[in-house]
Amino acid sequence: MKHILLFVFLAFFGYSANAQFLNTAGDIDHERLNFGFLLGIDRGSFTVVKQRDFSTPGSNPFSPDTLQAIKPMGSMGFSLGLLANLKLNRHFDLRFTPKFSFIDRQLEYQYNKASDNKILLKTVESTFLELPLLLKFKSERQNDVRLYVVGGVKFVTDIRSKKKKADDISYNPDDDRKLVKINNSFLALEAGLGADIYLEYFKFSPELKLSHSMNNIMKSGEDNIITHPLAGLFAEALHFTMYFE
């Protein structure tokens, strides 16, 4: 992650502000509507909301052990997609960036037993189709670089939902992977910053962005050893995305 932040920092400040414009990226700034594609590296996790009595001995009817802690564990993934950018005026663009995101999120459960500590790691597997609609505010161009901030909302749906339904039909209670379920679709907020770097024939834009689901995404009606101590789960992610326009 340090290398990613360093790359973004260099992209922001690695060019002289006093030099003359060198590249036009194919005169992209004169186009009302332009397109591109994106590649991303993502780190997904959960914000965990626990029941008040989650650590009370005997509070979980599915386990005789006492739960000490529930910790979200970050997991790396990747994304790829397309970009449609509509120029509103000199400083504002409207961006639609549909993409496929492949991220697994994990939860670590720490139980206390009479003789030792027991740690269980549960993985929530997802393949998301994300449909973000974002507003981009751009600074004045300095040399071949223009800085920007971006924010908006996205609709997220799990394209593995049909497979999950098939899995439910053949449910095996000993299969821990099926004990944590999230809603098939939800809304999330996104905000971040980036830099447009103008090259001779195209524009390259590294971007760092955070996202957080607006509502609890844990599926209701699922009560088992893993979900009983939970009051809610919120999906969060750190996205490092490279746009090519």
Score class of each variant (00 low, 15 high):
residue 1 M to V: 08
residue 3 H to G: 07
residue 4 I to Y: 12
residue 6 L to Y: 11
residue 10 L to W: 14
residue 10 L to I: 11
residue 12 F to Y: 13
residue 13 F to T: 13
residue 18 N to V: 12
residue 19 A to T: 15
residue 21 F to H: 15
residue 21 F to L: 11
residue 21 F to T: 14
residue 21 F to W: 11
residue 22 L to P: 02
residue 26 G to K: 09
residue 28 I to P: 10
residue 28 I to N: 08
residue 28 I to L: 15
residue 31 E to C: 04
residue 32 R to I: 12
residue 33 L to V: 15
residue 37 F to A: 14
residue 38 L to T: 10
residue 40 G to I: 03
residue 41 I to G: 15
residue 41 I to T: 12
residue 42 D to T: 12
residue 42 D to F: 05
residue 46 F to I: 01
residue 48 V to R: 00
residue 50 K to T: 12
residue 56 T to V: 13
residue 57 P to C: 05
residue 60 N to R: 02
residue 61 P to K: 03
residue 62 F to K: 05
residue 64 P to C: 02
residue 64 P to A: 05
residue 67 L to C: 09
residue 67 L to V: 06
residue 70 I to R: 08
residue 74 G to W: 06
residue 74 G to M: 07
residue 74 G to Y: 05
residue 76 M to R: 11
residue 76 M to G: 09
residue 77 G to K: 00
residue 79 S to R: 10
residue 82 L to F: 14
residue 87 K to N: 09
residue 89 N to M: 09
residue 89 N to Y: 08
residue 90 R to S: 15
residue 92 F to T: 03
residue 94 L to P: 03
residue 95 R to S: 07
residue 96 F to I: 14
residue 104 D to R: 15
residue 106 Q to Y: 06
residue 107 L to P: 13
residue 107 L to M: 10
residue 109 Y to Q: 08
residue 109 Y to D: 04
residue 110 Q to C: 06
residue 110 Q to S: 13
residue 111 Y to P: 10
residue 113 K to V: 06
residue 113 K to E: 06
residue 114 A to I: 07
residue 116 D to Q: 11
residue 117 N to K: 14
residue 118 K to R: 12
residue 120 L to S: 10
residue 120 L to C: 09
residue 121 L to E: 07
residue 125 E to V: 12
residue 126 S to F: 00
residue 127 T to Y: 01
residue 130 E to L: 00
residue 131 L to E: 05
residue 137 F to G: 11
residue 141 R to P: 11
residue 145 V to W: 05
residue 146 R to N: 03
residue 149 V to E: 00
residue 151 G to P: 03
residue 152 G to A: 02
residue 153 V to Y: 01
residue 160 R to E: 02
residue 161 S to F: 07
residue 162 K to W: 02
residue 163 K to R: 08
residue 166 A to I: 04
residue 168 D to P: 03
residue 170 S to N: 07
residue 170 S to W: 03
residue 174 D to E: 07
residue 174 D to K: 14
residue 174 D to S: 09
residue 175 D to T: 05
residue 178 K to A: 08
residue 179 L to V: 04
residue 180 V to W: 03
residue 181 K to W: 00
residue 182 I to V: 14
residue 184 N to C: 00
residue 184 N to A: 04
residue 187 L to N: 01
residue 188 A to W: 01
residue 190 E to W: 00
residue 194 G to A: 04
residue 199 L to V: 05
residue 202 F to K: 07
residue 203 K to S: 04
residue 206 P to R: 06
residue 206 P to E: 02
residue 209 K to T: 03
residue 210 L to P: 00
residue 211 S to Y: 01
residue 212 H to I: 01
residue 214 M to R: 00
residue 215 N to L: 02
residue 223 D to M: 10
residue 223 D to W: 09
residue 229 P to W: 07
residue 229 P to C: 08
residue 231 A to M: 05
residue 232 G to P: 00
residue 239 H to I: 08
residue 242 M to I: 09
residue 244 F to L: 12
